[in-house]
């Protein structure tokens, strides 16, 4: 396996009025190609900022991000990023929102429509194709965003708390769907969450961040797949990992 994303000494300072706000300091991370990395951290520790920098949306104050060895200077189509807040176009219905990445990359109209139908079915939005984002529930918007992200057929997925707003059942469904999509596809996933259980359920590796993106813990998760949430809860390895993560999160807040 080779390193796909390499983050070195990343620092981001926002300027607000005449003061600088440091959101991330000297952050480093290497992501192996084909791996599923979950990033855990308390609110405000710089997770979203880190993903914004890795996706190329933001420019770092210091440090570098490289993808396959090339420095990342702006967004690139191989990397798809599901941001924390919804960015569906309010004037497009679900189907046309999902078609959008294909529209931009110049896929023909018929192909676009077919692929969009398939994605809509996968995320369970059949029947809502003609609804506008405001006519959907928060969870449905999330699923539409997920479908749109997949429509670009990315090789790397950056996801910022994608399933936070969903009910437990749907969350499990989509987690499984995501794993199914990832397994054996060679795709790389960086998945940000604040839910320890979700991090352990999905990740090959869990990175726990503390204040300003300090790496408190970085640990491979060797639980066998497929992982079942109910069985895991009584698994001694899982229980001890869970305790370790809780401890690390608490430690990170100091």
């Amino acid at each position: 396996m080779s390193t796909l994303i390499e983050v070195r000494g990343l620092t981001k300072r926002f300027v607000k009025d005449e003061t600088g706000i440091v959101a991330l300091r000297d952050f480093g991370l290497e992501v192996e190609k084909g791996s599923f990395v979950t990033v855990l951290g308390r609110s405000g520790c710089g997770k979203s900022t880190a993903l914004n920098l890795m996706s190329g949306l933001l420019k770092p104050t210091e440090g570098t991000v490289s993808y396959r060895g090339d420095p990342v200077t702006g967004p690139r189509t191989e990397i798809s990023y599901l941001t924390q807040s919804d960015t569906l176009m309010p004037w497009r219905d679900v189907r046309r929102n999902i078609e959008m990445p294909m529209e931009i990359s110049g896929v023909s109209k018929r192909e676009r429509r077919e692929h969009a139908e398939e994605l809509i079915r996968r995320v369970g939005l059949t029947g809502f194709e003609r609804h506008y984002p405001r006519e959907l529930s928060g969870g449905m918007r999330r699923r539409a965003s997920l479908a749109r992200m997949l429509a670009g057929d990315p090789e790397t997925l950056l996801m910022d708390e994608p399933f936070g707003a969903l009910d437990a059942q749907l969350r499990t469904d989509l987690q499984l769907e995501l794993l199914r999509l990832w397994q054996g596809s060679g795709k790389t996933v960086v998945f940000v969450t604040h839910d320890i259980e979700e991090a352990l359920l999905l990740g090959d590796r869990v990175v726990v961040l503390g204040l300003l993106g300090r790496r408190v813990l970085d640990k491979p998760i060797e639980l066998s797949r497929p992982r079942d949430a109910d069985e895991l809860r009584v698994d001694p390895t899982f229980v001890s990992l869970h305790r370790e993560m809780t401890e690390a999160l608490r430690e990170g807040a100091r």
């Binding site: 702006g74 690139r76 189509t77 990023y81 990359s105």
Partner: peptide, 11 residues
């Protein structure tokens, strides 16, 4: 955010 979304799609 919407502009960023289009940038991410390669627009």
């Amino acid at each position: 955010g919407l502009i960023d979304a289009v940038r991410l799609m390669g627009g």
